[in-house]
């Protein structure tokens, strides 16, 4: 089975000059929490995840140890959020990323995701144009539905706040 057969094609896209707040809104509305930064020809330039947005808030020197030295870090964090508001997608995005081509076998996607611990991989054509994405769950659902006797249905969510 090819990657093209089970990739998602509805993606969150952003331009390189998209600002931090807009990026955050885009990502907050999406599953998986990713935005693909593309140029006018949909060539993939980079990827921004929720982790990247969080990382950019924290200064590079901040460690778990140093974070413990604050009794209340709220003011510090507010200052950092203020500092990053002018950041653009091109400043935050990960520029080196792994990817798949649509003709790749699902097995390769499965191996890459398992080996490197990715959650999602973009699918691009030979010229770098973004075509879609494939997630761990997509692969899993496809594998189970095609290779076993049972289908994966929605297990349903439990709202713990109602308990």
């Amino acid at each position: 089975m090819d990657v093209s057969e089970c990739m998602r094609t509805k993606l969150v896209l952003a331009k390189p000059d998209c600002d931090y707040k807009r990026l955050l809104c885009k990502i907050a509305d999406s599953v998986p929490r990713l935005a693909y930064v593309v140029d006018d020809n949909y060539k993939l330039l980079g990827i921004v995840s929720a982790v990247d947005l969080l990382k950019v808030i924290l200064p590079s020197y901040m460690s778990v140890g140093l974070a413990r030295s604050f009794s209340d870090g709220t003011e510090f964090l507010q200052k950092q959020v203020e500092r990053v508001k002018d950041k653009r997608a091109e400043d935050i995005m990960v520029k080196k990323f792994s990817f798949l081509h649509p003709h790749h076998q699902l097995l390769k996607a499965d191996a890459m995701i398992a080996e490197k611990g990715f959650n999602t991989l973009p699918v691009i054509d030979e010229k770098g144009k973004l075509l879609g994405e494939i997630t761990r769950l997509d692969i899993l659902v496809n594998l189970v539905n095609n290779c076993s006797d049972y289908n994966v249905d929605d297990a349903g969510l439990v709202d713990l706040s109602l308990l």
């Binding site: 413990r68 030295s69 009794s71």
Partner: peptide
């Protein structure tokens, strides 16, 4: 002065 140095010792 409000930073907590003792929290650094792991």
């Amino acid at each position: 002065m409000s930073l907590q140095e003792n929290e650094q010792i792991t």
